[in-house]
Design a protein around this nucleic acid. Sequence first.
DNA 1: GATTCGTGGGC
DNA 2: TGCCCAAGAAT
Length: 351
Amino acid sequence: MPSVPAEVPKSAAGDRTAVRAALLGWYDAHRRTLVWRAGPGAAPPDPYRVWLSEIMLQQTTTAHATPYFEAFTRRWPTVSDLAAAEDADVMAAWAGLGYYARARNLLACARAVARDHGGVFPDTEAGLLALPGVGAYTAAAVAAIAFGRPANVVDGNVERVTARLFAVETPLPAAKPELKRLAGSLVTDERPGDWAQALMDLGATVCRPGRPLCERCPLTAWCAAFQSGRPERYPLKTKKADRPHRTGMAWVLRDDQGRIGLVRRPDKGLLGGMLGLPTSDWAAAPVETAPPVPANWRETGSVEHVFTHFALTLQVRAGQGGGDFIWLPEAEALASLPTVFRKALERGLAG
DNA sequence: GATTCGTGGGC
DNA sequence: TGCCCAAGAAT
């Protein structure tokens, strides 16, 4: 009598059609409601809104991006409106969202679409990829979601879901090509935008980094990580380098009308293109630096701020005076500054 | 392939 | 508290 195992483990590789049906069915029942999304079964969403949301969502949570998306689409309803905006207005509107190169590229992209494409987004992955600030992920996402192209949309969620589904033992980031190939093996021309968003919704709400909610997952029957008993082990990652610490000085200068003296930072580098307080260089050890203008400077304490690749302590000094600065009222300055300078300004005003 | 580039929330 | 991480892109 032939011995047949009672339960033969299924695999996603051998059952692609069933995996797709299970996840798309789950998506139809459990998809997230997000402000940039069209409703279930609705016509494909406006490419401008898809693109804008994708740029804002790069390395950014949906909760953080949502109010910015609402503000941008209210103020600049079309890509042509955005293309015609002033640089300073767009940078100020982006303040607090982080990764400010995105805002500079956002404007460059809007202007390229307006100037080179008649205000209409390219509808192919290759055409989108040629735009400023649009990389492999964003090109694929816009092509799939806005234009129904069967693109292989691979973000951090898709990498995690795929690593678990196939129990990939190679650690990130070395595993990226393998994960992309495996994710691509599940893409078809059926509902490409929904497929991409289904994978991302699953990754965000069920197949989470820390404690995956496998009891709610529609794919456990095919999931090698689930079958291993330790799904949270995936994806494996190589250890990150320690975060160094830097220190520096920031000056809060007020004129006789109570306005704040600001500088425009150079386009390249940290906080590029944004307004900022005048500061010293930031180094591992304190560097004695002359203040930007003579004044009766007083110590007002310090603020801590953590960037992606270093932590910063900023000593804040406040004083009264004038000079060659960009002078903004307090409220406008607070609203236009990146967070590290908003914190320093608040410290200087309180002291 | 490795670095640079923000911020805020969760645990 | 410190670490992880979030719909990555550019260099």
